[in-house]
């Protein structure tokens, strides 16, 4: 009789849980899962979605020169930016850790870059790096030839700096939160055993920051795709080839109604990101199991 009551209560709880979850589930189904399914479907159909073409769209985008250029640039950007961002922000977090006053100050100021409107950032970039901007003026003053920085290979560096400037503070905060979660007793015990700072870092701090590294890395990856806004606003639909990113080609394809290509590229992009995230997650899990 008690078991039957528990069973009834269990069903009731399940119903309540479902009722509470329903709005989110409906939202995710309608706003994420359904569109994703439609994109996957469209990647196997013609542009207006009425003729099945198999893998033709995938073949078309792999053969597409601009797509390959955009993918190459995007990967280059990720490989340069994400490690740089993680290392710089971790180093800064380590310097700030245990300096409470500085932490409080920097926690606020570091996040300011996130709330600066993109248009302001773009204006600053253009003021500095335009052909007739401040940097060119400085070059002229120093006797060097002014350059159209944003229309040369230098544009890539501008974009990297822009990305680092924007997300550096945010990542420092994430690292600081990770560092704060490591119990002090670990360090005390290690020091009792004679470990120096470097050993503490490699044998306690770094392993303990694994979870933070995963979250920070994934967020850095996601944020790196957002830098397209700056690239688009600074240099338009067709920027210098060094900063012609994946989003440029997707955006331009949409203008030309190439929905089939966008869908195929989106599916590939989704799979790539999932692959990276799953691989990182698996590695993390293995480490945890090992520990």
């Amino acid at each position: 009789m008690i078991r039957a009551r528990n069973k009834r209560m269990g069903r009731g709880e399940a119903r309540a849980a479902l009722a509470f979850l329903a709005p989110s589930l409906i939202g995710i189904f309608g706003m994420v899962l359904l569109p994703t399914a439609d994109v996957i479907r469209r990647s196997f159909f013609s542009a207006m979605g009425n003729t099945f073409v198999g893998l033709e769209n995938y073949r078309a985008i792999f053969e597409n020169e601009s797509f390959r250029l955009a993918v190459g640039n995007t990967i280059r950007f990720l490989l340069v930016c994400i490690p740089l961002l993680l290392l710089l922000s971790l180093a800064t977090a380590l310097m700030l850790y245990r300096r409470k006053r500085l932490q409080d100050l920097f926690r606020t100021t570091y996040l300011l870059t996130l709330v600066v409107p993109v248009t302001s950032v773009v204006m600053i970039i253009q003021t500095v790096f335009h052909k007739n901007g401040l940097l060119s003026a400085l070059c002229a003053l120093l006797g060097s030839t002014p350059q159209d920085w944003l229309n040369s290979e230098f544009a890539f560096l501008v974009l990297v700096v822009c990305y680092l400037w924007k997300y550096f503070g945010y990542n420092v905060i994430l690292w600081l939160a990770g560092l704060a979660a490591i119990p002090d007793s670990y360090y005390e015990a290690a020091r009792v055993d004679g470990a120096n700072e470097i050993k503490c870092f490699f044998y306690i701090t770094l392993p303990q920051l694994g979870g933070t590294l995963f979250i920070t890395g994934v967020l850095a990856l996601i944020n790196s795709f957002k830098v397209f806004r700056e690239a688009y606003l600074v240099a338009g639909r067709y920027p210098n080839s060094s900063i012609y990113m994946l989003q440029h080609v997707l955006s331009n394809w949409f203008s030309n109604l190439d929905m089939q290509k966008i869908s195929a590229a989106a599916v590939l992009l989704m799979l790539s990101i999932l692959l990276v995230v799953f691989a990182a997650q698996r590695r993390m899990d293995r480490k945890k199991e090992g520990a």
């Binding site: 020169e65 601009s66 067709y238 080839s241 012609y244 080609v249 331009n252 394809w253 030309n256 190439d258």
Partner: peptide, 10 residues
Amino acid sequence: ESVISTYLSE
């Protein structure tokens, strides 16, 4: 040529 080829290949 780079611009034309990128643009046209899109």
